[in-house]
Amino acid sequence: MNKEIIIRLFTFFAGLYFVVEFILPKEINEEIGLVNIHESVSYGFLAIGAMAFGLGIINLIRIHGSKIIFLQKGAFYSLVLLLGFFSMTFFAIGDWKLNMESSKRAASIGLLQKFAEKVETTDKLELLKLEMKKIPELRDRADSLATLEDANKSSIIFQEASQKVVNEETSSWIKDGYNFLNKGVFVPLGAAMFSLLGFYIAAAAYRAFRVKSLEASLMMIAAVLVVCGQTSFTLMIWEGFSPIRNWLLQVPNSAAFRGIAIGAGVAGLVLAFRMWFSIESGSFGRKK
């Protein structure tokens, strides 16, 4: 079978599942068993999509790695980029590992809770107490379970211990490093990058916004009213700006934007059908 046909078939059947699941009434979905498998199928599709995460990494390392190895222009900055990348990866894995340790402890407490709920013999009760004594958060409570009934109704003891483990504040250099990269690099630099736009929009307002036509005048008037309607200073001058702004947003703006949204929505639907039926050729590498 032609490779292109195989690709088209897979594309079609992947989309068909969700279209069928949407179109069929709930009762029929239940009858044919789609409801029972829906979560697993969705996780399957999610996993397929998520597996693409490595593509970016491979490209990043290839491009910047080669710059460093061959000492090309900008090699130092490539080194900085890869250092940032690997340090974040290292600390994020470290943070994950630390969290896993506490969650494993919480899970073993949860397991004992389940065991306690179904304990039926005194032998097993003793076994439960023995296991509880191995866990620091439960050690002191083990002897409070005198009878089988005590054990069966002891959920709260285990839940409290589990909460204690999960809420435990652990400090380590790994956590410090992870916090530093998040709060000292990722958040502030990201915010600063975007905030540059504030300067540019001010410069553009002075240089580029010329009110030369009726369209530009209408745009300017609407912009001024919207800004004045939610600025404390202008509202101190005249409170009437606020209802005008709200009316402008609720009536003419909503109507005009709904027109845009409906148009874009219909276009999106057409595009979805074109993708589903593989009419869009670009993705499949078909030569012109």
């Binding site: 001010a202 307002a205 002075y206 916004f209 010329r210 001024v224 800004v227 600025t231």
Partner: peptide, 18 residues
């Protein structure tokens, strides 16, 4: 409050530019 002042200045810049 700071945001309000900045917005008014930007509008002022549009007027000045014109």
């Amino acid at each position: 409050t700071a945001l309000g002042v900045a917005q008014l200045v930007v509008l002022g810049l549009v007027v000045l530019g014109n």
